[in-house]
């Protein structure tokens, strides 16, 4: 005579240390984005914060029927000066990193973030500007955004930050997100910016974009070596 165990239908496997173990509760560790993120992350238009072009995606890297990400949608232009921001991602040997992903986060032309964590209701939002962008690097390691030049945002105490774009870099071989910023060489307040001031003087140039003859703002991101970009601990 056999009697069925009362918990047969709900019995879980023997406990082992895993993601849900209370003794391990804490920050989920970072892992690399790997080389195959293109069909999953950078959508068409992700790098165009102004218009409805398809900048940002790499649909050339997988079959069209497997493009399931968002497509760019027409919307009114945001306020402010339209700028092109671009550069390469380079490794410690100066080689182009063709499987990197770059993201930006920035304030609108008034210097206001489209975020509930920016409490300054007196500084207007722009209904046509979110301020988040994402792009894969191309076959030559170049990344490129079309955005607007951000306004100035307050810093600690009574300081005012210079116009800047917050940047994240991911890639095969990058186990962690690398955080940095890009400033504009003619930016008002570069000399008093509290974050630039935290960067050793000889490395500040690695955060400052220059205007090329075509009018684009250019700044390479160097992962390693003598010209290594100043990356931040957050």
């Amino acid at each position: 005579m056999h009697t069925e165990s009362p918990d047969l239908e709900t019995r879980n496997v023997a406990p082992r240390q895993d993601n849900l173990d209370p003794a391990l509760f804490g920050q989920t560790p970072s892992q690399t984005v790997g080389p195959y993120f293109h069909y999953g992350l950078p959508w068409k238009g992700a790098a165009d914060l102004v218009g409805a072009s398809e900048m940002g995606a790499r649909p050339d890297l997988f079959p069209a029927e497997h493009y399931v990400l968002a497509v760019a949608r027409e919307h009114p232009a945001p306020l402010g000066e339209v700028v092109e921001l671009r550069g390469r991602v380079l490794d410690g040997e100066g080689q182009a990193v063709v499987d990197a992903m770059v993201e930006i986060w920035q304030a609108n032309a008034n210097g206001r973030y489209a975020s509930p964590s920016d409490p300054r209701d007196e500084v207007p939002l722009d209904p046509n500007f979110i301020g988040f962008g994402r792009t894969a690097t191309d076959a030559t390691g170049v990344w490129r955004f079309r955005t607007i030049r951000p306004g100035r945002v307050p810093g600690p105490g009574n300081s005012l930050q210079a116009p800047h774009v917050a940047v994240s870099v991911f890639g095969r071989g990058l186990l962690t997100r690398l955080a940095t910023r890009i400033y504009f060489e003619d930016g008002e307040g570069n000399d008093t910016d509290p974050v630039l001031a935290a960067v050793p003087a000889e490395r500040r140039a690695t955060l400052i974009a220059h205007r090329d003859p075509g009018g684009a703002w250019v700044r390479d991101i160097v992962l390693q070596g003598a010209d290594e970009t100043a990356f931040f601990a957050l």
Partner: peptide, 21 residues
């Protein structure tokens, strides 16, 4: 060949780091 060799720089937290879409 892809990891930074310099120590990461600790910056003051500002609105730029505590906001997001």
């Amino acid at each position: 060949r892809r990891s930074p060799q310099r120590e990461l720089i600790r910056i003051p937290y500002t609105l730029s780091e505590v906001t997001g879409p």
